[in-house]
Amino acid sequence: MLKINNLSISIKDKKIIDNLNLNINEEEIHVLMGKNGIGKSSLAKVICGMGDYQVEGKIYFNNEDITNLSIDERSRLGIYLINQSPIEIEGVTNAEMLRMAVSEKTNNPINIFSFNKELESVCKRLELDKSFIHRDINVNCSGGEKKKIELMHMWILKPSLIILDEIDSGLDVDAIKLVAKNISEYLKEYKASLLLITHSNNLINNFKEFYTHVIDNEGKIIDGDKSLAIETLEKGFNNNIKTNIISE
């Protein structure tokens, strides 16, 4: 599904990711870990076509070279990012934005009645009051509500690759459980793949199996399975990590 070949990312001539290779196949979960400021969020943004980075290498999505595609083109292909701090937009409601997004993705007009029904059902699933449908995007929302709203968008836009950038930061235990449950259900229902960027075991404990990639201090990637994530969380990023390298 997502194939990254020899990707290097620099910002203002400083290299932050060096020669990264990564394959994410259908229905796979991958966890990306690394110290603060090591380049995890930059990688997520580069996959989505965001930010002012200098990028070398290639990114393929479903065998299509997307390296030079715009943010919205990549999104319409099915790549979806949830940031740790979703922004607020005054004057634009969730429903208004989603109607436009779905209409652009499908090239079809929206049936308002069934669209609203779908939104209401998603709100129920997320334990989110349905009044949020017609509220301005993320305006006057708590951190937990913002994450739920981003998940609401995900359920409606139906992406095939989800990138979660520290979605668990600032969430309480119950909210993390709800997010994990929703993500798991979504992955199962839509046979989607997940790239999860996290610092904590709060969210990853909810997934049975996954691949782990740890960015070291030189910007190189160490690959492993779930045990690598657990070991990294126990010992920290500064200790030597013994890993079972996954053969590709």
Partner: peptide
């Protein structure tokens, strides 16, 4: 942000100007 939801640049601007 709007483009990351799949909305083209022109339509994203239009939505924000209307807002």
């Amino acid at each position: 942000y709007l483009r990351s939801k799949g909305i083209t640049k022109n339509n994203a601007k239009k939505i924000l100007l209307n807002a």
